[in-house]
Computed example of a mutant assay.
Amino acid sequence: MTAIAAGVLYLVSHITSVGGLVLYAPILDDPGIVGPGADTCVLWGAFLEGLLALALAYVGVRTLEAASIVTLLTVVTCS
């Protein structure tokens, strides 16, 4: 079950990073950022970046947990 969750979050991280870049395009391509513009696109892009941060944080925590388990197994094997 954990592998499926990690795989899904890995895919979510790719989808949200590309989606955020596409939604930020109106602001990145416009030299005059100040003023009326594509506020909705930027808000959705920021939302997708938040999802990306959550997905990456989850995968990072699981990786650290796996590293700690390997460390504990090394101690058990060496003793």
Rank of each mutant, 00 (worst) to 15 (best):
Leu9Ile: 01
His14Gln: 10
Pro31Ile: 02
Asp39Ser: 14
Asp29Gln: 13
Gly19His: 00
Gly7Arg: 04
Leu11Phe: 13
Gly50Ala: 11
Val59Thr: 07
Thr2Val: 09
Tyr24Leu: 06
Ile33Leu: 10
Glu65Phe: 10
Gly32Asn: 15
Leu23Tyr: 03
Pro31Asp: 06
Ala67Gly: 06
Gly20Pro: 01
Leu56Cys: 05
Gly37Met: 00
Pro31Gly: 04
Ile15Asp: 01
Tyr58Val: 02
Ile27Cys: 03
Phe47Cys: 06
Ala5Val: 12
Val75Thr: 13
Ser13Asp: 02
Val18Lys: 04
Leu51Glu: 02
Ile27Phe: 09
Thr63His: 08
Ala66Asn: 12
Leu51Trp: 01
Ala57Met: 09
Tyr58Lys: 02
Ser13Arg: 01
Val70Phe: 07
Ile27Met: 12
Ala46Glu: 11
Val61Leu: 08
Gly50Arg: 08
Trp44Val: 12
Leu23Gly: 00
Ser79Asp: 04
Ala3Tyr: 10
Leu73Gln: 14
Val70Ala: 11
Ala66Met: 06
Leu54Pro: 00
Asp30Phe: 00
Cys41Pro: 04
Val8Cys: 08
Met1Asp: 12
Glu65Val: 10
Ile27Trp: 08
Pro31Val: 03
Ile15His: 02
Thr74Cys: 05
Ile4Arg: 09
Tyr10Gln: 08
Ala53Glu: 02
Val42Asp: 01
Val70Glu: 03
Thr77Val: 09
Gly19Gln: 01
Leu9Cys: 07
Pro26Asp: 05
Thr71Ala: 15
Ile69Met: 08
Ala38Ile: 00
Thr71Pro: 00
Ile4Met: 10
Met1Trp: 11
Leu21Met: 13
Arg62Val: 09
Gly60Leu: 12
Leu56Ile: 12
Asp30Met: 02
Glu49Tyr: 15
Val61Cys: 04
Gly19Thr: 01
Cys78Arg: 15
Leu56Ala: 05
Asp29Met: 15
Thr71Trp: 09
Ala46Gly: 07
Leu56Met: 09
Gly20Tyr: 01
Val59Arg: 06
Leu54Arg: 04
Val76Pro: 00
Ala6Tyr: 03
Gly45Val: 01
Arg62Asp: 02
Ala66Trp: 11
Thr16Met: 02
Ile27Asp: 06
Tyr24Asn: 03
Cys41His: 12
Val59Tyr: 03
Gly35Met: 01
Tyr10Gly: 11
Leu23Met: 05
Leu72Met: 11
His14Asp: 03
Gly50Tyr: 07
Ala5Glu: 14
Leu28His: 04
Val22Gly: 04
Asp39Met: 10
Leu28Glu: 02
Met1Arg: 13
Ile27His: 08
Ala3His: 08
